[in-house]
């Protein structure tokens, strides 16, 4: 994710007006063994933690069953979602993303109370003003764009209708106060988090 050019040097084809497909010119370079092993370990142990919580039995038989099935799912997932070997492990995100999550939670709570006030207002039809707005974000990497689009959708009052890889957003907002805050502070926070 620190290196947005690698692996994305292909040609972008337009399918619909807001959907574009990227086709690579050359295949990816062969991936190093260590990145693959690290991703196998991370996937296996997170799956095994979920197994332990869901089964709740800690004897040898059930834990063996869990280990076998988690191993199988991990091996299948390597073909379904191959690990990215061209990007280093994002240590920065491990520390920055929880901080951003806390800030986002506070924003969500504030926006929730604002929309709640709108709904309970007796003259609601005069207060609301639904509209579609478009803007171009300056974020470039796919991860940052995904986090930004999901944050917009999670905040009450705004829904991301579509986003493409060049950062064109189409957002439905329920009133003027929700719409004028975009992209604004949230984009700045995400740019800080992803180091762009």
């Amino acid at each position: 994710m620190h290196n947005p050019d690698s692996g994305q040097g292909g040609v972008i084809f337009k399918v619909f007006d807001d959907v574009s497909v990227e086709r690579r010119r050359q295949p990816r370079p062969p991936r190093p063994k260590t990145a693959r092993a690290a991703s196998v370990l991370v996937r296996f142990f997170s799956l095994f933690a979920v197994w332990l919580v869901l089964s709740g039995m800690f004897d040898a038989f059930h834990m063996t069953l869990g280990a076998v099935s988690c191993l199988g799912v991990t091996l299948f997932s390597l073909r379904l979602l191959p690990p990215r070997a061209d990007a280093p492990f994002p240590f920065r995100l491990v520390f920055r993303l929880p901080l951003y999550g806390l800030w986002l939670t506070w924003e969500i709570v504030k926006a929730n109370f604002w929309v709640l006030y709108l709904v309970f207002h007796p003259r609601m039809m005069e207060k609301i003003n639904p509209r579609l707005i478009t803007f171009k974000s300056r974020l470039t990497s796919r991860g940052a764009l995904t986090v930004f689009a999901n944050s917009i959708t999670l905040t009450p009052g705004t829904i991301t209708v579509s986003v493409n890889e060049r950062g064109h957003f189409l957002v439905h907002a329920i009133d003027g106060k929700s719409a004028e805050g975009l992209p604004g502070e949230m984009e700045q926070k995400i740019a800080d988090t992803f180091g762009e």
Binding site: P130, T153, P156, I174
Partner: peptide, 9 residues
């Protein structure tokens, strides 16, 4: 606008 309600509130 109803989707704002069903989806998030």
């Amino acid at each position: 606008s109803r989707l704002h309600m069903a989806g998030k509130i």
